[in-house]
């Protein structure tokens, strides 16, 4: 028989650490939210400014622009969406999603590379 019959395997209860967002905690976070909001504003301006700066090639400009955007998106995800302290399960879902979305982007590159279309 498989080991799922042993009592130890029944309902693996993950250590349920206390809700990170209980009342006092939340009030502490407010400053952080405001700061991140300010940071995002500043980086928006930086994005705009950088796009008028010549990095040597247009490709380089695109790369820089995307880098800044990714950083901003990361801030939104990590702080506003609480991903910096989320449960396991959410990470698992997102890891798969990220993988598959990258596969999807990769396909567009492959298809573009396609000798018949080119």
């Amino acid at each position: 028989m498989n080991e799922s019959n042993s009592p130890a395997a029944s309902e693996s209860v993950v250590q349920a650490h206390p809700e990170h967002d209980d009342h006092h905690d939340v009030s502490k976070h407010i400053k952080k939210y405001l700061m991140v909001g300010g940071l995002l504003m500043i980086f928006t301006i930086i994005t705009v400014a950088l796009s008028y700066f010549d990095f040597g090639s247009h490709k380089a400009n695109i790369a820089v622009g995307m880098l800044v955007a990714t950083f901003k998106a990361g801030l939104v995800a990590a702080i506003f969406m609480h991903l910096s302290a989320e449960r396991h399960l959410v990470y698992q879902i997102l890891i798969f999603t990220t993988f598959f979305v990258l596969v999807l982007f990769w396909l567009t590159y492959l298809a573009w590379y396609d000798p018949v279309v080119r």
């Binding site: 598959f100 396909l107 492959l110 590379y113 000798p115």
Partner: peptide
């Protein structure tokens, strides 16, 4: 099953590597 889809497209002339 997410990374096999182009086997429906052999005749689109994908490169040999793909």
């Amino acid at each position: 099953s997410f990374i096999v889809w182009a086997h429906h497209m052999w005749l689109t002339g994908m490169g040999t590597v793909v």
